[in-house]
């Protein structure tokens, strides 16, 4: 709209000036003057097609003015992911530090509170079911709801999933939908390839919304598998919102405790990369299958 209005304005000014000039009421000099005045009034016109944009400076950039030993500060920044060497404005953080913090927190909150997209689930060809937590608020405030499937989910799994397989893979949003979208496309094919080429019988992986770790016990009771593995989003930190964990358990029952689960955490591009994690998890699952045990019981057998 702004562009159209301005164009119109220019046309009007120009035609008025031309009329004045025709009538000899305007010197050439005056014409220039009036034109430039009109130009100055024109606001800057944004160009939405431009590639220019504002971004954060690189994280490793040293932000301290006149440090005693700049190399030392740079080296220290390499030694820890902590926010150090970031300088200050008076006692407060610099503008970029403040905004980066806000951005990291925003990404973390979005990872927790937004859902895995339907488009993603379709692209990965994953059936989707839900825990008994109806909303994110309920999921966060009532942990027990995320540990059970909804009645509809239980029905759907009983109906559609293959029974008595060796391994059932679950993709569970947990506390980070972003972790799912970032890692599953590389982790899942690597894991499937590893298990299949080892001759292990695997059920079709599916997705559980608003789920917690324990929901795997409920699934295992329906599909009757040897090992159930949940690939679940970890609680985001400000450093990354994309970290994923794998929880595995051998034949869970009502006496199952936390220590019976084998856990591999910190799966993301800055930790163990997802494709490599898929290959590593294959080995771990093979160990669990041959030991017929997981968690502490597995470690004791090693």
């Amino acid at each position: 709209m702004a562009v159209a209005n301005n164009d119109l304005e220019k046309v009007i000014i120009q035609s008025v000036m031309e009329e004045l000039a025709k009538k000899g009421l305007l010197s050439q000099k005056g014409k220039d003057h009036m034109m430039s005045a009109a130009m100055m009034d024109m606001p800057f016109v944004p160009n939405p097609q431009s590639e220019e944009m504002v971004t954060f400076p690189p994280q490793e950039e040293m932000q301290i003015d006149n440090p005693f030993n700049a190399d030392a500060v740079r080296a220290m920044k390499k030694l820890t992911p902590a926010r150090i060497g970031i300088g200050r404005a008076g006692t407060r953080p610099k503008t970029m530090s403040l905004l980066r913090f806000l951005a990291d927190h925003a990404v973390a909150q979005d990872a927790v509170f937004l859902d895995v997209s339907d488009e993603f689930l379709q692209r990965m060809n994953l059936m989707a079911v839900q825990s008994s937590a109806g909303s994110k608020d309920e999921f966060l405030q009532r942990p027990e709801l995320g540990r059970r499937l909804s009645e509809e989910a239980a029905r759907k799994i009983a109906e559609k999933c293959e029974k008595n397989v060796q391994v059932q893979i679950l993709i569970v949003d947990g506390l980070s939908s972003s972790a799912i979208e970032a890692n599953i496309p590389d982790l899942l094919p690597a894991l499937m390839q590893g298990l299949k080429s080892s001759g292990i019988k695997v059920g079709a992986p599916f997705f559980i919304k608003n789920g917690r770790v324990w929901v795997q016990d409920h699934v295992a009771s329906i599909v009757n598998c040897d090992v159930v593995i949940s690939l679940i989003g970890e609680r985001p930190g400000l450093g990354t919102a994309e970290s994923l964990s794998a929880y595995m358990i051998y034949r869970p029952d009502e006496n199952t405790v936390e220590a019976d689960r084998t856990v591999i955490s910190n799966i993301h591009k800055g930790g163990i990369p997802p494709a490599e994690a898929g290959a590593h998890l294959t080995d771990v699952i093979k160990q669990i299958l041959s030991a017929k045990a997981s968690g502490v019981k597995l470690n004791q057998q090693k």
Partner: peptide, 24 residues
């Protein structure tokens, strides 16, 4: 906590900057 972000416990708390600010 450096920059208010605890990179081991993954939570946010009073930063070194906040410490100096609160005193002043």
């Amino acid at each position: 906590v450096p920059g208010g972000d605890d990179v081991m416990l993954s939570y946010q708390d009073t930063s070194y900057h906040d410490d100096a600010s609160t005193r002043e």
